[in-house]
Design a protein around this nucleic acid. Structure first.
Length: 1029
RNA sequence: GGGCGAGUAGCUCAGUUGGUUAGAGCGCCACGUUUACACCGUGGAUGUCGGGGGUUCGAGUCCCUCCUCGCCCACCA
């Protein structure tokens, strides 16, 4: 025994063992999943991480939960496939590489050219992909690496190309002129999802545009207001409401309705608005009426500076209740103005170059940046006396999420996917339950978003991504286009289904080619067609992920077997961007939903409740946590925290590399390149260290104390296992008859069975935290604190030893299985060792021959072992034990001092407690002198009533009478108070008559118990007081 | 403006269909090295369950309302 104790270290050496275990699993093909008609498939596709950088704690959570599901199903006999891979993440990745290019070499992508830049991005991708996949391995993710995909690899590319060609042929892809969010730094359109708003200080300029040839009684100027005066260069009209009086009436009416319904508190502001409105009727309405009339007669204005004539138009977009009541119309740079331009048939003038400078349309301002132009224009207008007023104002300015630069709304040619039918199909899949979203509340956002059925702009003016497979030729004249279309339709490629084409009125022809590298591509290029330079939105390829990774469009056996996938586990922020699009593409391409369930897990927030992100500096690298706590603690900790309703709030600490002090990460220090440790006053560096000097300081890992629980738990498990193994010497398994085992054995087996069932239910229902807590409580409180402690005396007894060993080995074996999905490394390491000492760990029947725990079978809850009566009996033992310990502790008895005690109880309890006598001795150093009713009361008693049992300790020489009196007095008070409350309740007629009988009965019983307890406390007090005199 | 979620011990969170004296981990206090584990053991202290109102014999739990925080969507001349 002592040899073994030395052989097995009392700490799990995760640093070396985990890497070895992972390699051994992988070498043995444990992660592989194959088409296997004899098993049911269980499939999860990983939400492919972006190859922009490394994974953070959010990914760690996401992947831990997936791995738990995969490992659990694998043990349950499913053919479990976890499909791994990464996402090329178009804009994000190109932006990272371009930023580095700028920082390190001061070059732009244009200095490098398309081919060279793409080459650089591939390099970056290769590096970060290795890093990401290694992070996943370190975490223990059991992905089938032989199937690893990348959204830009050949297999995914084929799926993208096929999908595009198909949608194009169905008329669901088209080109249109639309306003896009233009990122002037990356020089690409970004989607609404990639835009964030930030309030900046700005101004509100009121400008005057002269009226050309005003008639008598007409104003000479029209005043408009803008936050962006430079856009006046692109103005093509000023709008006024066609019927300002009616519009004001409507506004007033709605205000009055609101006012009538509003509570008193909200009224004043509404009333003020009404007052302002009526004032406005006097100050503005006459003028607005005149202007509306002028608009109808076709009045024209002179756009200052450019001296261009523009129209005054009547349009409902102009709100008479706001500003001057007139609004400048800049169709090419404002979404609303664009709509006005369509309605009023206005010209649309784009004044910007792709880099955000002004173009030739800006006249003498050409080449200026927006900023410079604004300054100059305002100065010149002021000189002309055309600035009526300048207000200070906060402006909610749109910024590009990727480059952090302001967005310019910009009119450009864009490719769209028509969402109509596709979105409807995806909505139906959720409403009819083919796709179940868990928790259910997230279905609402999904449906609302799809319900808008907005066309999806899929083109990106980037170099990194799937190039749009369209060749375009502008035939200039309609007749020529018609002739060309006729020619195309005669081509063999056309009848072979290799090309499809559309006519964009009046004379632009778009042709799509089905297969990459098909001769038709060359043919088109030699006959005047030009390939679209744009690439596809990165979500286009990720939308295909569940089927493209399985080989679609080829009808592979994998696709047949593993699709639809079982479960998608992801974070809530991409429900629309990704989940919704996967559903619609899956339905379109394969005709079946991509997954049956979507589980949305909580987000990891920092100590301030903010989402973690690299740019904020509050991100945590899971590798730092693994280094400090081990991969199992990382996983178990995340699992423990992943509750059903709350996001995970996680304050994090730098760990000083010099003195290991924990330095809380704050808003102040989290963005600094170096930090001085408050404990040793030495400097360490952070992720922001850039300069050589900054980087010369050792980098502090960032971890969180929240992983302590999990680390401690792993250690507890390790040592419990160590105890079991140390005590398995000479273990000879036999066939055990559970029913004839002693109480404690039957109790732990019953608890094991219940725990097994509950953990299965929790994992199956995605209640990960609950699963962790159930296993934790069973392992720590029930197995370690009670069963193992009780096993100690039994192992000394030759008659009891064998059965005890067997139950210990069996329980540990089953516990390891239950924990394997959550903490695979340490459980596997223990299981491998356990197999050396106890080859057979079943209670009876044939043992399972399995090399690896991760491939072993999931335990089934043995209902024969479940015995609520045994569990209740055991809880009485625990109660007595607790009473003994409490008395010992409050009397401050040294652990070595033995005490004697008696328990007054009924006969049933007596026969139950009798066999437990040795355990009172072992666990509380207390010798039982008597159970039941016939025993002498000691001279110096300390009593406690629990569960109707009166535990009396003979304190003899040990007693601290004062302390005992004080404690009893306190207790007496509290009991009296409770009794009074209960009596009041029970004499309350309405309670007794209306509450269910069993509730009333329960109250009565508890009153009796309380009274009994009070009585014994009073008796004890009397005795103690007498003694004290 | 619309929607969703959260507010329970110093901190981070559980709390099942309303039902005895509201729980856990960490932290704190006291005692302790009893041959698995000090990443441990035993015991203890700590709560107007965000505020107010209502339903009910009974509310942390249900309803209304207010406050605070977070997230999503829409809009912003």
């Amino acid at each position: 025994m002592s040899d073994l104790a030395e052989l097995i270290p009392n700490r799990f050496d995760y640093q070396t063992v985990c890497t070895e275990l992972y390699a051994a699993w992988e070498a043995d093909g444990c992660f592989r999943a194959e088409v296997n008609p004899h098993r049911k498939p269980f499939t999860i596709v990983i939400p492919p991480p972006n190859v922009t950088g490394a994974l953070h704690l959010g990914h760690a959570l996401n992947n831990t939960l997936q791995d738990i599901q995969i490992r659990w199903h694998r043990m349950r006999g499913f053919e479990a496939l976890w499909m791994p891979g990464t996402d090329h993440a178009g804009i994000a990745t190109q932006a990272v590489v371009e930023r580095r290019l700028k920082e390190l070499e001061n070059k732009t992508r244009h200095d490098l050219g398309r081919e060279k830049l793409v080459e650089r991005i591939w390099q970056w991708k290769n590096e970060s992909e290795i890093r990401i996949l290694n992070q996943l391995r370190s975490m223990g993710c059991s992905c089938d690496w032989s199937r690893t995909r990348f959204t830009l690899d050949d297999i995914c590319a084929k799926a993208v190309r096929t999908t595009f060609f198909d949608l194009f042929g169905k008329g669901l892809i088209f080109r249109g002129k639309r306003l896009v969010n233009w990122d002037t730094f990356l020089q690409t359109a970004v989607s609404d999802d990639e835009v964030f708003h930030e309030v900046v200080k700005g101004h509100f300029w009121h400008l005057k545009y002269p009226v050309i040839d005003p008639a008598v009684g007409e104003p000479t100027h029209v005043t408009i207001a803008t936050t962006r005066p430079e856009t006046m260069l692109g103005d093509t009209a000023v709008a006024v409401h066609p019927d300002p009086a009616a519009a004001l009436d409507a506004v007033e009416k709605s205000l009055r309705i609101k006012l009538a319904a509003a509570p008193a508190k909200e009224r004043p502001p509404l009333e003020q608005q009404l007052d302002e409105l009526s004032a406005r009727r006097e100050t503005h309405l006459p003028l607005l009426k005149t202007l509306a009339a002028m608009a109808k007669r076709g009045a024209r204005l002179r756009l200052p500076l450019l001296e261009r004539e523009i129209r005054l138009v009547a349009d409902v977009w102009a709100k008479p209740e706001m500003g001057s009541g007139c609004v400048k119309i800049t169709p090419a740079h404002d979404p609303n103005d664009y709509e006005v331009a369509l309605r009023c048939d206005l010209p649309m003038i784009n004044i910007l170059n792709v880099d955000g400078t002004l173009n030739t349309e800006a006249g003498k301002y050409q080449g200026l940046t927006v900023r410079k132009a604004r300054q100059q224009i305002v100065e010149e207008l002021e000189a002309l006396g055309l600035v009526a007023e300048i207000e200070d104002r906060d402006i909610d300015l749109a910024h590009s999420d990727r480059s952090k630069t302001p967005i310019e709304p910009y009119l450009a040619d864009q490719w769209f996917v028509k969402m109509d039918q596709l979105a409807q199909a995806a909505m139906n899949a959720v409403t009819d339950g083919r796709v179940k979203i868990i928790p259910e509340r997230y279905a609402k956002g999904y449906l609302d978003w799809l319900g808008e059925k907005r066309d999806w702009p899929v083109g990106r003016q980037l170099w990194w991504g799937h190039q749009i497979p369209i060749w375009t030729r502008d035939c200039v004249e309609e007749a020529a286009a018609k002739a060309e279309l006729a020619r195309l339709s005669q081509l063999p490629d056309c009848s072979a289904g290799q090309i499809q084409f559309t006519l964009e009125a009046p004379a632009v022809i778009h042709v799509s080619v089905r297969d990459e590298g098909h001769p038709a591509e060359k043919m088109l290029e030699s006959s005047g067609y030009v390939r679209q330079a744009d690439v596809l939105d990165t979500w286009f390829s990720s939308a295909l992920w569940p089927h493209s990774t399985l080989g679609w469009p080829n009808q592979t056996p994998e696709l047949e077997y593993f699709y639809p996938t079982s479960s998608l586990i992801t974070s809530r922020d991409i429900i629309t961007l990704w989940v919704a699009r996967m559903v619609l593409m899956g339905l379109n391409n394969v005709g079946e939903v991509p997954f049956k369930e979507v589980f949305i897990h909580p987000k990891i927030l920092d100590g301030y409740g903010e989402t973690m992100s690299k740019s904020k500096g509050n991100g945590v690298d899971p590798i730092d946590v693994i280094d400090k706590f081990g991969p199992d603690a990382l996983r178990f900790g995340l699992c423990w925290l992943a509750t059903d309703t709350q996001d995970v709030r996680m304050p994090v600490q730098f760990e000083c590399p010099h003195c290991e002090a924990a330095v809380n990460q704050t808003k102040q220090n989290r963005e600094q390149p170096t930090i001085e440790c408050p404990s040793c006053n030495k400097l360490f560096s952070t992720q922001w260290a850039k300069s050589v000097e900054e980087k010369s300081y050792p980098k502090a890992p960032v971890t969180s104390e929240r992983f302590d629980v999990a680390r401690n738990f792993c250690n507890k498990l390790w040592n419990a296992a160590r105890f079991v193994m140390i005590n398995l010497e000479g273990f000879q398994p036999m066939q055990l008859d559970v029913l004839s085992l002693p109480l404690e054995d039957r109790w732990i087996l019953s608890r094991l069975s219940t725990t097994t069932r509950l953990v299965s239910e929790a994992i199956g229902g995605y209640h990960f935290s609950e699963a962790a807590r159930l296993a934790y409580d069973f392992a720590w409180d029930e197995f370690c604190s009670y069963y193992v402690e009780m096993a100690k005396p039994r192992l000394q007894d030759p008659k009891l030893k064998a059965a005890t060993q067997q139950v210990l080995a069996h329980t540990l074996d089953q516990l390891l299985r239950i924990l394997q999905p959550m903490i695979p490394f340490i459980t596997e390491a223990i299981w491998q060792q356990l197999a050396r000492f106890g080859k057979v760990r079943t209670l009876c029947g044939t043992p399972e021959q399995q090399k690896w725990l991760m491939k072993a079978s999931w335990p089934t809850a043995n209902t024969d072992h479940q015995d609520t009566q045994i569990e209740q009996q055991f809880s009485r033992f625990v109660a007595v034990l607790g009473a003994l310990r409490e008395i010992r502790s409050r009397q401050n008895l040294a652990p070595k001092e033995e005490v004697t005690f008696t328990v007054a109880c009924d006969d049933a309890t007596k026969s139950l407690l009798e066999p437990m006598e040795p355990f009172f001795k072992a666990l509380a150093r207390a010798n039982c002198l008597g159970l039941g009713s016939n025993f002498a009361i000691p001279d110096m008693p300390a009593q406690l009533v629990v569960d109707g049992m009166e535990v009396t300790l003979d304190l003899g020489k040990f007693i601290d009478v004062e302390a005992e009196i004080e404690r009893n007095e306190k207790l007496e008070q509290s009991l009296t108070k409770q009794i009074t409350g209960k009596q009041a309740k029970l004499t309350n007629e309405s309670f007794v008559s209306r509450a269910p009988a069993e509730v009333v009965e329960k109250e009565r019983e508890s009153l009796v118990a309380l009274q009994q307890q009070l009585e014994s406390v009073t008796t004890a007090l009397t005795k103690l007081r007498r003694k004290n005199q």
